[in-house]
Amino acid sequence: MLSLSAVLFMLGLGALCGVVLSAASKIFYVYEDPRIAEVEFFMAGANCGGCGYAGCSAAAVAVVAGEAPPSACIVADAEAANNIAAVMGVDPGTAEPLLSYNTCMGGDRAPDKYYYMGINSCQALATLYGGKRECPVGCLGLGDCVRACAFDALKMGPHGYPVVDEIKCVGCGACEKVCPKDIMEIKTMSQKLLHLNQYDDRIAPCQQTCPAEIDIPRYIYQIKNGDYEGAVNTIRERNPTKSFAVILRPGLSPSL
């Protein structure tokens, strides 16, 4: 009969704990804003932390408390932001999405200082004299950022530097964190356009010193391939007055 008393004892103890806990959950019930659950429902639910909060539910609490905008979730689309704004009864606003931008267009063009045979990782390569390329600031090309991207938005391009798929990119910042050379930058389109070239930017000397910050390597590449319309647009893109004439004639070098 020893086992029977043991079973009865555990049954009693379990029942007691259960009753006490269920009573406690009623007695110590804390009212929680139902909007928190509604807001969290519209978020992506990936708990990626890209918004800067500990997870989706922490972000939902911040949205309901008014500390974060309805578009706090960077993974969810504009429709989700509108739904969240409807739950909160506020204007969704026009938040600009963050995107990953690759700031190095050099890649394979830079010659190598030495032959590297080792772990296939930029982090490892960067510890050996800052990488194998002669260019001290450029992309190392081993693709740490490609492996870090959880959204399949980065591919290693044909010229030895990564290419961002702007449709898939959610701007979570995983590539920016993992790059030992700080090539990947997470910023909005406005931040990108308002950026003035800095001394340590990874750009060609002609572009570095151009007062209008025109993308000269692209301009020359387009002329070389006969894409004159594209070349004009490249000039117009950053030209402050928009009225410079570009005269292109076959057999003559282009002049401003």
Partner: peptide, 21 residues
């Protein structure tokens, strides 16, 4: 087994109590 059950329930109870009080 009795101690495990009691400690687990106790922590749950304390958590609810603290959240309210």
């Amino acid at each position: 087994i009795a101690f495990i059950l009691v400690i687990a329930s106790l922590v749950q109870f304390v958590e609810m109590f603290l959240k309210k009080s």
